[in-house]
Amino acid sequence: MDIVMYVLLGLGLLFFTGGTLGLIRLPDVYSRLHMAGKIDTMGSISLIAALFLHEIETFDMAHLLVGLKILLVLFFQFLASPTACHAMVNACLRAGLAPWVKDGQRSDP
């Protein structure tokens, strides 16, 4: 149980680091949105799962309730992230921001 928790914790911190690095390094709004919308969500889901495992280690009613609430947070993140991502990418496109493409290519549609 402990080992799984530490692996999830390390993975979550790795995902957060990668997401933040991508937020700084990537060239345009659309590709940064991949980082903010999904790598970060994956990181937070891993970290919350690690906390859930830590919480239900001592198993009784009060800890179980808190664990269920933590699972509710996790489920909400999983549900809300694609919706927020979609709202932002829709706003980007309607605002007329052109996607960044490599030299010598053009954006298709």
């Binding site: 970290l47 919350i48 906390l51 933590i70 947070v73 927020a84 706003a91 980007c92 921001l97």
Partner: peptide
């Protein structure tokens, strides 16, 4: 752009949720 700022705020909010826990 404004969308960049909004996205940065969203990323910070995701991290804040975990930080509070």
């Amino acid at each position: 752009t404004t969308l960049d700022r909004l996205m940065g705020a969203n990323a910070m909010g995701t991290k804040t949720t975990v930080l509070i826990l």
